[in-house]
Simulated assay, not measured.
Amino acid sequence: MASFIKALLLVVVAEMGDKTQLLAMAMASKYKVKQVMMGVLIATILNHALAVAVGSYLGNVIPMDIVKIVAAVAFLVFGLWTIRGDKLDDEEEKKVKFGPIVTVAIAFFMAEMGDKTQLMTISIAAENSKPLLILMGTTAGMLVADGIGVIGGAWMCRHIPEIYIKWVAGIIFMFFGALTLYKSVPAAFLTPVYIILFLVALGVLIYLFGVKFAYYGQVCDIALSGQEVSADKEKSCSSETVN
């Protein structure tokens, strides 16, 4: 059960402001929420089943000490990726010539390939021996995070600055990454010199990803525009009913 909860919480954190959350929010302005969430569910199960299979295989063929170090570095990268934010390209919002659920599932599956949450699922699966619980946890985490974005994205944008969400999520990842790295690397690398060099390098990377090359604003732009589209649809339906 601990593996399920860990996977769920980490995916929720990773998905905040992620490209696939942006895509789910954009799709919600075109289709019904239940159709979007069903498409997300189908795509996530398929995508993360692949990720869990890859992670479980790597965990079996690579020594666990190396797996933990790689996972720790990956978490640091995910933290930097999170504070930088993601950008949704216009091509990823294009409609596919299928029904709403299949359209969302295909778009979401393609967007998730090589994305942060898929790579993180591989890392979690490589560290654990319970692939089914990891799959269930990461799938539930995607549904929770994308549900928050679709249903409560506009509310969050009005009450919580986007930058706060990204920085809190990124710091959580970097904290766990640094802690895991501290517990995994050989004692010879835990000297003051190496620790100071690590902190300086991490500080420079945080500045570059979190300030210099960061993406901000798109989450709220999509959330608020989606709410406006939904409001316009309701008005048009009401006027048609009256007529």
Rank of each mutant, 00 (worst) to 15 (best):
Asp65His: 10
Ile165Asn: 02
His159Gly: 01
Pro63Trp: 10
Gly55Ser: 04
Lys116Gln: 12
Ala145Arg: 09
Gly147Ser: 02
Ala154Met: 04
Leu132Glu: 12
Val96Phe: 12
Ile148Thr: 01
Met120Ala: 02
Ile171Pro: 08
Asp146Thr: 07
Met136Ile: 10
Lys94Asp: 08
Thr121Val: 12
Pro100Gln: 11
Ile160Leu: 12
Val150Thr: 04
Ile172Leu: 08
Cys157Asp: 00
Gly177Met: 09
Leu119Gln: 03
Gly149Lys: 07
Met136Asn: 00
Lys130His: 08
Ala140Lys: 08
Val73His: 05
Phe78His: 04
Val67Arg: 05
Met142Asp: 11
Asn60Lys: 11
Met136Gly: 11
Gly152Ala: 10
Ile151Val: 15
Ile66Met: 12
Asp146Pro: 00
Trp81Lys: 14
Ala72His: 04
Ser56Cys: 07
Met136Leu: 15
Val54Met: 12
Tyr164Leu: 14
Val73Met: 11
Phe108Ile: 05
Ser56Val: 03
Asp115Ala: 08
Met64Lys: 08
Gly114His: 03
Phe175Thr: 14
Val96Ala: 05
Phe75Thr: 04
Gly152Arg: 10
Thr82Pro: 03
Ser123Phe: 07
Ile106Ser: 00
Arg84Val: 03
Val70Ala: 15
Ile163Val: 13
Val67Pro: 07
Asp86Tyr: 02
Lys68Gly: 03
Ile62Ala: 03
Cys157Pro: 01
Asp115His: 06
Gly149Met: 08
Ile151Glu: 05
Gly141Glu: 07
Phe175Tyr: 15
Thr121Asp: 06
Phe175Glu: 00
Ser123Met: 15
Val61Ser: 02
Ala154Leu: 00
Ser123Asn: 11
Gly137Tyr: 09
Gly141His: 09
Trp155Phe: 12
Val70Trp: 07
Ala154Lys: 14
Lys116Thr: 14
Glu127Gln: 15
Gly152Asp: 09
Gly141Leu: 07
Val61Gln: 05
Val168Asn: 09
Tyr57Arg: 00
Gly59Asn: 05
Asn128Asp: 13
Val73Tyr: 03
Trp155Gly: 03
Phe75Met: 14
Gly114Leu: 11
Glu112Pro: 10
Lys94Tyr: 06
Met142Lys: 06
Glu127Ser: 09
Gly59Phe: 08
Ala71Lys: 05
Tyr164Ala: 14
Lys95Tyr: 08
Thr121Tyr: 11
Gly147Leu: 04
Lys97Cys: 10
Ile69Asn: 12
Lys95Asn: 14
Glu91Val: 11
Met113Leu: 15
Val77His: 08
Leu119Arg: 01
Ala107Ile: 04
Met136Arg: 01
Leu119Val: 10
Phe109Tyr: 15
Trp81Met: 10
Leu135Met: 13
Trp167Ala: 00
Ile151Met: 14
